[in-house]
Design a protein around this nucleic acid. Structure first.
Lengths: 192, 192
DNA sequence: GTTTTATGAATGAACG
DNA sequence: CGTTCATTCATAAAAC
């Protein structure tokens, strides 16, 4: 994520930034400073994923010089960051489904799992011939989908030496079974 | 309404041009077309709230015929739409029947009230900075996945590291270099 | 052009 | 760990 310029942000409500040292204030959530984020990110880039208790303690201690922080914030930060890095490769994949079909700018490596782009369709529904339920294969693929996608993951890439992040090691099959089911049928099936 | 206070913060969000190389005309965040909104709204009305990964994929594909879109847009759309519907409904219901303010009676449709989860743990444990080494038991527990998660968190919260260590300059914009180096050294030692 | 609103995007916190 | 919820940040569009 490009760390762009600085901006002056007006915190709308002085509320959640609790006064700190005082009485047991009902806090808002932790709002990390840029320095804190930077340090955390550096650690993550360095390969740290699940810090142990004492690591969390140390990190919190270090970060406390930049602003208020608790250990649990560090814990959550790593949990979230790790989870979302993976998540990005799944449902929040940056891969766009542009309906241009002659472009291959997506996914250079591996077998791609992506459905092919649909040809430019005038109408929204293509009649289905494949009925439900979805096959086990399809379902399995959905669960396994180790997205390949492109490189918005600039972080991991240059993690170099240490990180052997190999979340999705094995190549899973990927039936392109592009079952062209009616979208609305599918919707009906999915609804509850 | 506005300013409780100003803070200067560097935000990471520059204008990330939607590099997708799409139309090129419009940059910045996704701007759904009316057809896209229509379809999304229909799905929502049909009862869809939290589409699964493959659902998101399919919806994205479908919507791509109306304009440029990414999977994450669909994901966010449902997240936001659901959240804001709930938000509105909550605000209404607080004023709704039973104008007691602190009532928790607000329609337990499903799960709710996570926020009251926080135990009255707000005591000020100021000292008790537990220097390592931590026991093996603690370490093992930390490494355990989710099972004892909450317990772990409580433990973490209870330790409240920061206050003990905010001695050094809160004014400093940058940490002492040596401190930082030693910190990274420690990290390297710990993990890699 | 400025202010307000609607909503896309992000993330801290927490659940199962 | 994957997922879900609440809250916040950011910004395009609408209102003024």
């Amino acid at each position: 994520m490009s760390v762009g310029g600085f901006s002056i942000k007006a915190k709308g409500l002085g509320n959640y930034n609790n006064g700190g040292g005082g009485t047991g204030t009902k806090c808002g959530r932790w709002n990390p400073t840029v320095e804190q984020v930077k340090l955390l990110t550096d650690l993550f880039k360095a390969g740290l994923r699940t810090p142990s208790t004492d690591q969390i303690q140390k990190i919190s201690m270090e970060l406390s010089s930049y602003g208020k922080i608790e250990s649990k914030n560090v814990f959550y930060w790593f949990q979230n960051h790790k989870a979302r890095e993976r998540q990005k490769r799944r449902k929040i994949s940056t891969v766009d489904f542009d309906h241009r079909q002659d472009t291959n700018l997506s996914i250079p490596q591996r077998h791609n799992i992506r459905h092919h782009q649909q040809p430019p369709k005038e109408e929204k529904v293509i009649e289905t011939l494949q009925l439900f339920p979805l096959s086990n294969v399809e379902r399995a693929r959905a669960n396994l989908t180790a997205a390949s996608h492109n490189e918005y993951i600039r972080e991991q890439v240059n993690t170099t030496v240490f990180s052997t992040y190999s979340s999705c090691g094995a190549e899973m099959e990927h039936p392109p079974l592009d079952l062209r089911l009616s979208f609305y049928e599918w919707v009906s099936y999915q609804r509850f």
